[in-house]
């Protein structure tokens, strides 16, 4: 064997180790889109809340439970749109590079991402049950961050930083109850857009 072959061997080993253990077709563009949806959702929610407060002096325009339904619907819509975009764009990226979207690596990624995420979701519902509304935004940020950190072992590693930052923002926001929406917009909106741009420049551009 010549030197060139040794180098080729090492590169081959590295590539197969990555390919067999990490899901690499995660699309950067879908991160940017998820951030935009989250920002739009936060702005819409903010608009609805502030209008609600102005109008509540003589007769409330909408009852409080109605407001809560609207806000929850916005959050679910943001989540659904983000998941759909991630699915479509990642499957496109996978097709382009000849990978499969649904294989052992994506399955593992999804499972390990979902465990902290669904725990956080359930915990948020419990907070709501006990009327601790102010802690819901920090909780979603913290658990989403934990989900990202956990997922980082199974996909491109950059998601780890997104996770750590979301955890930090979540913890900080517990000290500023009432401004949850702003932290939420920053964590899910701005950070996702930055993360998406980094991912896009690093892996998708070529």
């Amino acid at each position: 064997m010549k030197d060139k072959d040794y180098l080729k061997d090492i590169l081959e080993i590295k590539s197969i180790m990555n390919k067999s253990s990490r899901f690499i077709s995660l699309s950067g563009l879908s991160g940017i889109l998820a951030g935009i949806y989250a920002l739009a959702g936060a702005i819409a929610a903010n608009y609805i809340i502030s209008n609600y407060q102005i109008a509540d002096s003589p007769v409330s325009v909408i009852p409080i439970s109605y407001l809560e339904y609207i806000l929850i619907s916005i959050a679910l819509l943001v989540l659904a749109l983000s998941v759909i975009s991630a699915f479509i764009l990642s499957s496109k990226k996978a097709k382009k590079s000849g990978e499969k979207l649904w294989d052992a690596t994506s399955k593992r990624l999804l499972i390990n991402f979902s465990i902290p995420l669904f725990t956080g979701g359930a915990f948020s519902i419990i907070l709501y049950q006990f009327g601790l509304i102010g802690l819901i935004a920090p909780t979603t940020l913290i658990f989403y961050g934990l989900a990202c950190v956990n997922a980082s072992k199974y996909t491109l590693g950059d998601i780890r930083y997104l996770g750590v930052l979301n955890i930090l923002i979540g913890l900080i926001s517990t000290q500023f109850i009432g401004y949850g929406l702003y932290f939420w917009g920053f964590g899910f909106g701005v950070l996702h857009i930055i993360y998406g741009i980094v991912l896009y420049n690093k892996y998708d551009k070529k």
Binding site: D9, E12, I13, K14, I16, M17, S20, A104
Partner: peptide, 20 residues
């Protein structure tokens, strides 16, 4: 070399996955 690389980073791998 490929088989070993895949097995080094996974607890277990099945035949079809290795093939892919």
């Amino acid at each position: 070399l490929g088989i070993m690389s895949a097995l080094m980073v996974n607890e277990t791998v099945d035949f079809n996955t290795l093939k892919e």
